[in-house]
Design a protein around this nucleic acid. Structure first.
Lengths: 95, 95
DNA sequence: TCATCATATTCGATATTCCGCATATGCGTC
DNA sequence: GACGCATATGCGGAATATCGAATATGATGA
């Protein structure tokens, strides 16, 4: 839990995780482009998410494809879902 | 959400919040004693929890009584509940 | 083999967090 | 007002997090 909470308390990591939360694979280059951050920064943040067990990666030719960890225990999934749901409500209030 | 996640990603703050999550009032001296931390440390962590909107405080003679914020939006309550539930499972596995 | 693309990592600098110690503040009692 | 108790805060230092720039690694394809 500690590693997970530390991981998602950084905005870029939380944004990246939200993208990966769709269950599909996304390469680092795509995440960089969407989030507008540098390559080393993106790579390091993905490493943190991986070490927290939130995502898994796979080498595919010159790309590394990240995706949401399908084996994440349900209790942790519930936390992440709750965080994204709360943030979605925040966005509604802004809009 | 950012303030809440930062607040609960510190172990002492999370422990204090779990104590307050019972809905009752607890003074700083009690939290210090239970968690085994110094006074200034406890006080500062409580300030962080308060600024995140997770707890409220009340002056009662020489004590300050903290309690869980009863007006915390439901979406945030769900996050906290999920975190504590996940940690409870972790403890089970240890035991 | 060489060039290139995607990604990871090292390095050094900066920013932030967290702490203990000391001190200030607020409240009750004498 | 002086004292004691509970809490908050200012200060300086230690530890940690984060970053960009440069470089390393690994894969592809001419």
């Amino acid at each position: 839990m500690q590693a997970i909470l530390s991981a998602i308390s950084e905005p870029v990591r939380r944004d990246a995780l939200r993208i990966l939360w769709d269950g599909q694979e996304h390469c680092v280059c795509e995440l960089m482009a969407i989030l507008g951050v540098t390559q080393s920064r993106m790579s390091r943040h993905m490493k943190t998410l991986k070490q927290a067990g939130l995502v898994v990666d796979r080498r595919d030719a010159q790309w590394v494809r990240y995706r949401r960890n399908p084996d994440l225990p349900a209790a942790y999934e519930t936390v992440i879902d709750a965080v994204f749901a709360a943030e979605a409500l925040e966005q509604e209030h802004v809009a």
